[in-house]
């Protein structure tokens, strides 16, 4: 918080309150104090500790740990997982959103689906992991059904990357629906009719009008989904109880590690690496948002 008077009429303000900092600023002090203590301080701590050894001396060892091969592998897997689930989630979510907008605007299907998407997009963690374990795990509903009709199915894939991908789609697709529906709603039926009247067929409409128009919001939503998957922890943690397949699980390992002392600050370095990746995705996202806003307003 700055102590210099805000631009505008500093003279008028100070003559009224008799202070350099207007009294009205007191009203936001509790909020700023709380944010400072529980949001900004922890963030700063992550950065500072990433460059400090357990005794608080500056070091680059933690950051150097990021270049170790198992960390790099985990980072790569995290990015792969996020990319794949964002891509599949964005495509399927866009398809689902299109199916919804092509029906009646206030129909039952659309209302239920939108409400469900709102719930499922933030569904995750232990509950989601169990829901999948009892569906397609070793003793899961689908697995057993398949075995009963003679198809040799097993649930082992669920606890690996392939499993994470399917489980992540469970919240990625609804998130895509939520983010992409407004963009689809912004597409006016007149554009298709205008294309037709100008001599274009359905293909021309998609090729020249719908796809160019929807590409920025689609890419924006894709980046949001990427960041969402990259930051996700609980589902993976509940599904895969040990090891560090992906970065969030590496962080868990570093935090809870009791065998190797002095590893806590590696967690900070890992967290810093995560922030960088997410920040890049979010910066691209807001750039995309501005770009698509130029057309769709």
């Amino acid at each position: 918080m700055t102590s210099t008077p805000v631009d505008g009429e500093p003279a008028a303000r100070s003559s009224r309150t008799g202070r350099r900092v207007p009294l009205s600023w007191l009203g936001v002090v509790p909020f700023l104090a709380y944010i400072g203590l529980f949001l900004l301080l922890p963030t700063v701590l992550v950065v500072v500790q990433a460059f400090a050894d357990p005794d608080g001396r500056p070091t680059l060892d933690n950051v150097r740990a990021l270049s170790e091969s198992y960390v790099l592998t985990a980072f790569w897997r995290s990015i792969e997982l996020s990319f794949v689930t964002a891509l599949i989630g964005a495509v399927l979510g866009a398809l689902l959103a299109y199916l919804l907008v092509s029906g009646p605007a206030d129909g039952f299907v659309r209302r239920v689906a939108t409400a469900a998407a709102g719930v499922l997009a933030q569904f995750g963690g232990v509950t989601l992991a169990f829901a999948f374990i009892v569906s397609v795990g070793n003793q899961g509903l689908i697995t057993l059904l398949l075995q009963n009709i003679g198809i040799g199915a097993s649930g082992g894939w669920l606890y690996q990357m392939s499993g994470l991908i399917v489980v992540y789609l469970y919240f990625q697709i609804p998130l895509m629906v939520l983010v992409f529906l407004p963009a689809l709603d912004g597409v006016k039926p007149q554009w298709r009719e205008a294309t037709e009247s100008l001599g274009g067929n359905s293909w021309a409409y998609w090729r020249h009008v719908a796809v160019p128009l929807l590409t920025p919001p689609f890419l924006g939503a894709f980046l949001l989904l990427f960041a969402n998957a990259f930051a996700a922890y609980a589902t993976a943690a509940a599904l895969i109880s040990q090891g560090g397949v992906i970065i969030p699980l590496q962080i868990r390992a570093a935090i809870t590690s009791e065998t190797v002392l002095g590893r806590e600050n590696v967690a900070n370095a890992l967290a810093l690496g995560m922030v960088v990746v997410v920040a890049v995705a979010m910066a691209l996202y807001s750039w995309m948002q501005r770009r698509s806003a130029r057309w769709l307003r």
């Binding site: 007149q190 554009w191 009719e193 205008a194 009247s197 100008l198 001599g199 160019p212």
Partner: peptide, 28 residues
């Protein structure tokens, strides 16, 4: 429609928002 060769002006919002005026006119 696309074989009928009819020019149509709609009530509103029919310009393609990602094209300039010239590109809109040239689209057909």
């Amino acid at each position: 429609t696309n074989k009928r060769d009819m020019g149509m002006v709609f009530q509103a919002y029919s310009l393609f928002p990602h094209m300039t005026a010239r590109q809109n006119v040239a689209f057909g």
